[in-house]
């Protein structure tokens, strides 16, 4: 029983990073229907930016993290404005290849600048100190990640539902042309979307980096986040979050009780099953295509 509780707790803990990456994917997908493969690397470069400020310029934490978050927003703006917007007659697969290309460029830049040696980012909270709730351990960093993930989720949810900008984003997603006719600058909306998404990804990156950082650290969270987003329906923020936590818990339970080797693989098997039953994910309404 104790083990069971610990597995649930660990699942929730790891689910938080998946949730953040999932949210980041969903935000972009919602407006442009592109699964953004560069998401992980956008977060990576922002967290290495924070690392550089801390390590080489000796900035205090709050300044360095604030700078990294601002950097991430600007990066999102820049990528949308200078690359994705320039795509001629874009189609989804073409845009996917563009995001793969961006991913390679960013990964290359980070590895070029910082080399391949693993590093550890200084962080005010130790990743290896834990709270004990009874005999269940949750590390301080994981607790922080959980809190941050929930706060971001709530803010984004409220923002997208009630603010003017959020409504405009929704309109853009539903019908680009109609939204333009109604006076929404869809281009600008897209740019803001990328900024927000990059920001959320950066938060995830900053919370992953204190354990160990290296150029490939965002691959796993990205894949799992993408998987969670798909399982949740790809367009639903709460869906992505719930699915991310489910994924984390399932992984831990499966690793604990069945086979640790197939821990990562089982997540995908379950997703395939879920999708076979609900083809549009857990939380999205099935969209019936007309011919």
């Amino acid at each position: 029983m104790l083990d069971f509780m610990q597995m649930i707790a660990s699942g929730i803990a790891v689910g938080s990073t998946y949730a953040l990456m999932g949210i980041a994917m969903v935000i972009i997908y919602k407006t442009s229907e592109v699964p953004n493969f560069a998401q992980g690397e956008m977060a990576l470069i922002s967290s290495f930016f924070a690392f550089m400020l801390l390590d080489q310029y000796g900035l205090p934490y709050h300044l360095a993290f604030a700078a990294a978050l601002i950097f991430s927003i600007l990066l999102g703006f820049f990528l949308e404005f200078s690359i994705l917007r320039r795509a001629k007659e874009p189609n989804v697969l073409g845009l996917i290849v563009i995001t793969i290309g961006i991913e390679m460029i960013l990964l290359g830049l980070v590895s070029w600048k910082f080399g391949a040696d693993p590093k550890s980012m200084p962080f005010p909270i130790s990743p290896w100190e834990s709270f004990a709730i009874g005999n269940v351990f949750v590390s301080q960093l994981e607790m922080l990640t959980l809190v941050v993930a929930l706060i971001i989720m709530v803010i984004l949810f409220v923002f997208l539902r009630y603010s003017k900008l959020g409504v405009a984003m929704k309109a853009t997603q539903q019908n680009h042309i109609a939204a333009r006719i109604m006076g929404i600058r869809t281009n600008r909306i897209m740019m803001i979307t990328w900024g927000i998404s990059s920001f959320v990804g950066c938060v995830a990156g900053l919370l992953i980096a204190p354990t160990t950082m290296q150029p490939f650290m965002m691959w796993d969270p990205l894949l799992k986040g993408f998987a969670a987003a798909v399982m949740g329906g790809m367009t639903s923020l709460p869906g992505a979050v719930v699915a991310a936590y489910l994924l984390g818990i399932i992984e831990n339970l499966f690793g604990g009780y069945v086979s640790i080797e197939f821990k990562s693989a089982v997540a995908f098997a379950i997703i395939v099953l879920v999708l076979c039953i609900k083809p549009s994910g857990l939380f999205a309404r099935h969209y019936i295509k007309k011919v």
């Binding site: 795509a87 001629k88 563009i98 390679m104 290359g108």
Partner: peptide, 28 residues
């Protein structure tokens, strides 16, 4: 002067990525 010598081989990724992006930008 700006990056690191030990990571210099990663330039190939940057070039690869750039070529992918440019092809898809100009010729969908």
């Amino acid at each position: 002067s700006y990056f690191s010598i030990t990571g210099i081989s990663n330039i190939q990724y940057i070039v690869f990525g750039l070529i992918l992006v440019l092809i898809m930008l100009f010729e969908p």
